[in-house]
Amino acid sequence: MHSKRHVTGLIFCLFYVVSYFTNKYVLSVLKFTYPTLFQGWQTFVGGLLLLVSGKLGWVDISSIPRSAALSWLPGSFLFVGNIYAGSRALSRLPIPFFFTLHNASEVMNCLILKFTQRERIPWMKIFSLSLLFMSAINLPLCDPEFDFGGYTWALVHLICVGAYRVFQTQFKTTPLSDLEQQYINYLFSVLLLAFAAHPTGDLFGALEFPFLLTPIFHSGCCASAVLGFFLLLATVKLKSGLPLEQCGIWIVLAKVFTTCLSPFVFNMEVNPASLCCVFFSHVGEALLVYSERTSQIR
């Protein structure tokens, strides 16, 4: 049983690393910085594969009531903001720096719950959130290649991620599974991003993209969409087969693996101060998982 859990966790880590590397390659190396088209393509393929998988019985997706889909639309809005801003930020920031800012979404999540539910926060969780917060706000000051636009989009991304997590945990009016929620997100994202492609100028910009007709670009885009779908399935499998705190451990490990391997794949400029921010961000996330585990034991 334990070996099966480890295999599931390792498969999740593999898809996590390869998925982020593929997205980073298309966004930064090939410089395809048209998120309405890139994310629209990914969500279209993800939704199509999810639909086919449900029809074939590979995944469990029941008929979604219209009322449940409409009630979930605020979450879908946040999801679109998450992937759009995340794509913008990832195209301009190194992966370790992106994760450092992404981890700060836990602070946003906790603040929203604090003001809405007045819940008491244990001291260990406060300490871990402080590490995440301090790492995120100090990173732009330490970054040797500061990119104002990249950090601005990362801020929008972490706000959307934090708000989405709160909405997901508090949304209990209808019993939608994670896959059903994601299916609604995919459908809504495709429609919204398709309508936004022309006003944002991404459609005409993509037509002048120098790598548009090259096999490497097509392969990268197809791989990013398919890998994103398999990462979704691996994440759902991980959450369904392991306790919440163990899922958190594997997510931390996946980010650490991706952070440690990324300098060998992509060029990035760092200094000791920025490395400290990245390191303490991962430490803070690990302590956050530990604090949630100890609070559940008590």
Score class of each variant (00 low, 15 high):
144 P>I: 01
148 F>L: 09
154 A>Q: 00
162 G>T: 03
153 W>C: 00
90 L>M: 13
128 S>G: 10
86 G>W: 05
52 V>E: 10
128 S>P: 11
167 F>S: 04
56 L>W: 15
166 V>F: 04
127 F>L: 15
116 T>V: 12
68 A>W: 08
164 Y>L: 11
107 V>S: 09
99 F>N: 07
146 F>T: 07
88 R>P: 00
59 V>G: 02
85 A>C: 11
80 V>S: 02
98 F>I: 03
121 I>V: 15
131 L>G: 15
55 K>M: 10
159 I>K: 01
88 R>Y: 08
105 S>H: 15
165 R>H: 11
133 F>P: 07
67 S>N: 09
134 M>R: 03
141 L>C: 07
97 F>C: 06
114 K>T: 14
91 S>P: 04
149 G>C: 02
128 S>C: 15
142 C>P: 00
151 Y>W: 07
112 I>A: 11
92 R>F: 08
86 G>N: 13
150 G>P: 00
167 F>G: 08
76 S>P: 14
125 K>F: 12
102 H>F: 14
129 L>S: 06
84 Y>N: 03
69 A>C: 04
106 E>A: 10
81 G>K: 06
162 G>A: 05
148 F>Q: 01
118 R>Q: 13
156 V>A: 15
122 P>S: 08
132 L>S: 07
162 G>C: 03
51 L>P: 00
115 F>V: 14
135 S>I: 01
114 K>I: 11
